[in-house]
C-alpha cells in the first residue's frame, strides 16, 4: 500500500511538472514569436530573413545548455556509476542534438539568403559542424552501443563533445572579421535597436525553456523504459 501511495505521489508530481514545464515553454515560445513578428522592425540590409536570427541563436544557446548537462551527467556517472546520471546525460545529448541540427540548418538557410552560399569552411561553421558530428556519434552509440560498456563510453564521448563547446564559442575570434562571413554580432554589441535585443532575449529564453522541458520528458521516458 505504501509503495502504491509512493508511486501515486511520484505520478502526480511528474504530471504537475509536465504541466508547468509545458505552460512555461509554450507561453515563452508564443511571446518570442510575437516579439519577432509583431515588434521587431525589418533589418535594413537583409530584410525579413534576419528574423531567423532570434531562434537560430536561441537554439544554439539551448544546445550548449544541453551539452553542459551531458558534461555534468558524464562526470557524475564516471565518479559514481549512477544509472540516473547516464539516463540524464543520454536524454540531454538527444535533445541537444535536435537543437544543434536546428541551429545548423536554420543557419544554412539564412546563409544562403544573406551570403549566397549554404556553407563555408570557416572556423565557426566548421567547429559547429564538428560538434554536430560528435553528438550524432553520441546518439548512435547510445542507440546501438554494447549495453555492458555503454555507460562509460557514452560518458567519455559526451564529455569530449561538451568540451568542444568553448572551441565553437571562441572560434569566431580565430580569424579577423574581414576573413569570414559569420558575424560576431552579440560580442560586438552589433544589435542596433533595443527591440532586437529584447527579441533575442525572448527567443533565447523560449528555446532554453523548451530544451529543459524536453530533457525532462526524455528522462521520464528513460525511467519508464527502465521500469518495464
Amino acid at each position: 500500500m505504501e509503495k502504491f501511495k509512493e508511486t501515486l505521489r511520484k505520478g502526480a508530481l511528474a504530471a504537475w511538472v509536465d504541466g508547468l514545464g509545458f505552460a512555461v515553454a509554450f507561453s515563452a515560445v508564443l511571446f518570442a514569436l510575437y516579439m519577432v513578428f509583431m515588434v521587431v522592425p525589418n533589418e535594413r540590409v537583409m530584410g525579413p530573413v534576419q528574423r531567423i536570427f532570434y531562434f537560430h541563436v536561441g537554439a544554439a544557446v539551448a544546445c550548449y545548455c544541453s551539452f553542459g548537462v551531458v558534461l555534468l551527467g558524464g562526470i557524475y556517472y564516471l565518479a559514481t556509476r549512477s544509472a540516473i546520471a547516464h539516463l540524464v546525460g543520454r536524454a540531454a545529448g538527444e535533445v541537444g542534438f535536435i537543437f544543434c541540427s536546428i541551429t545548423l540548418v536554420s543557419g544554412m538557410i539564412w546563409g544562403h539568403s544573406a551570403w549566397n552560399t549554404w556553407f563555408r569552411w570557416e572556423p565557426r561553421l566548421v567547429t559547429f559542424l564538428l560538434l554536430w558530428v560528435i553528438f550524432l556519434g553520441f546518439n548512435l552509440l547510445n542507440e546501438f552501443g554494447d549495453e555492458e560498456r555503454l555507460g562509460v563510453q557514452s560518458a567519455v564521448l559526451g564529455i569530449l563533445g561538451a568540451i568542444t563547446v568553448p572551441l565553437v564559442v571562441y572560434s569566431i575570434q580565430f580569424l579577423p572579421q574581414s576573413a569570414q562571413l559569420h558575424p560576431q554580432v552579440v560580442g560586438n554589441r552589433g544589435l542596433k535597436d533595443a527591440s532586437f535585443e529584447a527579441a533575442l532575449a525572448a527567443g533565447t529564453f523560449a528555446m532554453v525553456a523548451l530544451q529543459f522541458f524536453l530533457v525532462w520528458l526524455r528522462v521520464r521516458i528513460g525511467l519508464l523504459e527502465k521500469e518495464r
Binding site: 525579413p48 530573413v49 537560430h56 536554420s106 539568403s113
Partner: peptide, 13 residues
Amino acid sequence: DTFPSLFWGYAVI
C-alpha cells in the same frame, strides 16, 4: 524580399 528564406527557415525549425 527575403521572405521565402524566412518561411523555409521557420518551417525547418
